[in-house]
């Protein structure tokens, strides 16, 4: 009798699993079982360091066996250089690939630090404690969520737009750069009115950097929590409309960027439809409808640097994706960086 529990017939979490089994087993092939078991097991966190805190937080975390993954880079990828903080407040990286081919320089946002426990270590972080000013020493979040912020490459004096900011994890990471000239934070849950349109019309050609961290099927959440689950029957319509909403948000972000400005599109789903397809369409529509030409920025230097910490999906033809793995249970995070040429 102990196992013959009566369960709801189709809880959203099992609908999500069915959906993922059907789509990801094709999309990821042999990798899917390994990603699946990671998604269904306890995730790992990273501790985003609060540079405004007064405590010696990093030292404390290191004493517990953590390391800041942003400085714990792959030695092979490090061959060229990592500029020191004195040299420049914004790190510029010129990388040559493992195959010797020269990759274009990639700017990473400086001063963002995130501590993680080593590979295969399942120790949990203790909740952060406030310092004497009441500031918390760190913020616990998926360490892979820090990557889109690093990839954004914010530099001194930049005007930055965080288009889908709530609840603010990535905003916090961006603020750690301490070099943002002006940060504009938007989220429909705050403004209520459809701000989206406004961004296109009023704030056109304005921002040096735009982060477009769109709502998505939040794969990990959808598998673990029945509450507020996008796979519940009554949210089917909303779920189907996600790629369209994502496309509109990315286009709004592209329009809000200035010529020469850069946009990072990110999600926390493995879905090709919500990732690569959205970016492809946005690039096409930006050119056709708005006359904006975009260049895809190669993020391979970043994946090479951080492959000690994360598992990246192999051979994506557009953007990069952190795929969950039991020994490094971060992600999923998809990100693609675009540069406005016109």
């Amino acid at each position: 009798e102990k196992w013959a529990v009566t369960r709801t017939k189709h809880p959203p979490t099992s609908l999500a699993l069915q959906h993922f089994d059907a789509t990801y087993s094709i999309q990821l092939g042999k990798l899917w079982p390994s990603v699946r078991v990671a998604l269904l097991s306890e995730r790992k966190y990273g501790a985003l360091l609060n540079n405004f805190s007064h405590d010696a937080v990093l030292a404390g975390l290191e004493a517990q066996g953590c390391r800041d993954f942003t400085s714990d880079t792959d030695t092979e990828a490090q061959t060229s250089e990592v500029s020191t903080e004195e040299e420049s407040s914004c790190v510029s990286m010129k990388k040559s690939g493992a195959d010797g081919q020269q990759l274009p320089p990639l700017q990473l946002s400086p001063h963002i630090k995130c501590s993680v426990f080593p590979r295969a270590d399942i120790t949990r972080f203790k909740p952060a404690r406030p310092d004497m000013c009441g500031l918390l020493g760190y913020y616990l979040m998926d360490a892979a969520s820090v990557l889109p912020c690093l990839a954004l490459g914010v530099q001194e004096g930049h005007n930055v737009l965080d288009l889908c900011a709530a609840p603010g994890g990535k905003t916090l990471a961006l603020l750690q750069t301490q070099c943002i000239g002006f940060l504009c934070v938007n989220d429909s849950s705050v403004s209520r009115t459809l701000r989206l349109k406004k961004w296109g019309e009023i704030e056109r050609d304005t921002f040096d950097r735009v982060l477009v961290d769109v709502p998505c099927t939040t794969d990990r959440h959808s598998l673990m929590e029945d509450d507020n689950n996008i796979f519940s029957k009554n949210r089917t319509g909303e779920r189907r409309k996600l790629p369209q909403l994502q496309l509109e948000l990315l286009l709004a972000g592209i329009e809000a960027a200035c010529p020469g400005g850069e946009i990072v599109y990110s999600t926390c789903t493995l879905s090709q439809t919500q990732n690569l397809s959205v970016v492809e369409q946005a690039i096409y529509l930006a050119r056709e409808k708005h006359g904006i030409n975009l260049q895809v920025v190669d993020l391979r230097p970043l994946t090479r640097m951080f492959r000690k910490t994360f598992h990246f999906a192999p051979d994506l033809h557009l953007g990069e994706m952190v795929i969950p793995h039991l020994a490094a249970n971060f992600g999923p995070i998809y990100m693609c960086k675009l540069r406005r040429l016109t």
Binding site: P33, S34, V37, S41, E42, A120, I122, H325, L326, A327
Partner: peptide, 18 residues
């Protein structure tokens, strides 16, 4: 299982805690 022993090792530790 078609998995690595690293994965299984982490998995067993996670299960024990769960």
């Amino acid at each position: 299982a078609m998995a690595s022993s690293e994965e299984y090792d982490v998995f067993k530790r996670l299960m024990a805690r769960e």
